[in-house]
């Protein structure tokens, strides 16, 4: 029934995002004691589980948005995920540490030079809850249109008046003739922890959090 043995009382399971975020995270993991080769693999390494025997850890490689799900259900003890996902989907997790990796901003953007947003505005976004909550906090009942990608296209084609999206450098906005109108919140990667794991394997979980904190502090002040 259970193909993979569930994390026992001895192994600490850490859910990490695959891809771009993982490459950004690798230096921090290296300082914690995880060999970058273990996380990033060599050549065509498609294994989704990587053991780190030296630390007694098991890493699960997941789609970034799925990390908090694994952790909330307790299939992973700790995880690394973006604050955007946490705010959009509202998980009940401990968030003991901001890792400062993958910094970007959730913004409202419109076509360059647009003067005022119509009321109610139509907003295209991958983050419907964040978008609705942001406008609701200003007393504006926005019409939120959920799209999965190419969000920047929405204001250009008349699908929406504005977008709510993550912006890292702003290059995509510029190339699509959009500009930031306001910042909704700052985003970076957060270390999250399952509540039961924190209670049941508290010493181990807290030691892992402290290792990340130490690694983060040395990175900040090299």
């Amino acid at each position: 029934m259970e193909g993979l043995p569930r994390a026992g009382r001895d192994v600490l399971t850490l859910a990490v995002p695959k891809g771009r975020v993982l490459r950004a995270l690798a230096p921090l993991l290296a300082r914690v004691g995880v060999d970058p080769v273990t996380v990033l693999g060599e050549g065509e390494d498609r294994r989704l589980i990587r053991e780190v025997p030296a630390l007694g850890w098991r890493l699960l490689l997941l789609k970034p948005d799925d990390v908090p799900t694994w952790v909330e259900y307790g299939a992973a003890d700790l995880g690394v995920c973006g604050r955007d996902v946490l705010l959009e989907r509202g998980f009940d997790l401990y968030q003991p540490l901001d890792l400062g990796v993958g910094r970007c901003q959730m913004v409202v953007a419109t076509r360059q030079g647009m003067k005022t947003l119509p009321d109610p505005p139509r907003i295209a976004t991958k983050y419907p809850r964040c978008a609705a909550a942001h406008f609701a906090s200003k007393g504006i009942q926005a019409e939120v249109i959920y799209v999965q990608g190419s969000v920047e296209l929405a204001p250009l084609t008349g699908l929406a008046d504005a977008i709510v999206d993550l912006v890292e450098t702003g290059e995509t906005l510029r190339q699509n003739a959009l500009e930031v109108r306001e910042v909704v919140f700052d985003v970076s990667s957060v270390l999250v922890a399952n509540r039961a794991a924190y209670k049941l394997r508290g010493a181990r979980a807290r030691a892992a959090v402290e290792a990340f904190r130490a690694a983060f502090d040395t990175e900040k002040s090299p």
Binding site: A197, K199, L200
Partner: peptide, 11 residues
């Protein structure tokens, strides 16, 4: 208080 045990991942 809350009670925890290995398995469910919730109290």
């Amino acid at each position: 208080f809350q009670l925890f045990a290995e398995g469910p991942g919730v109290p």
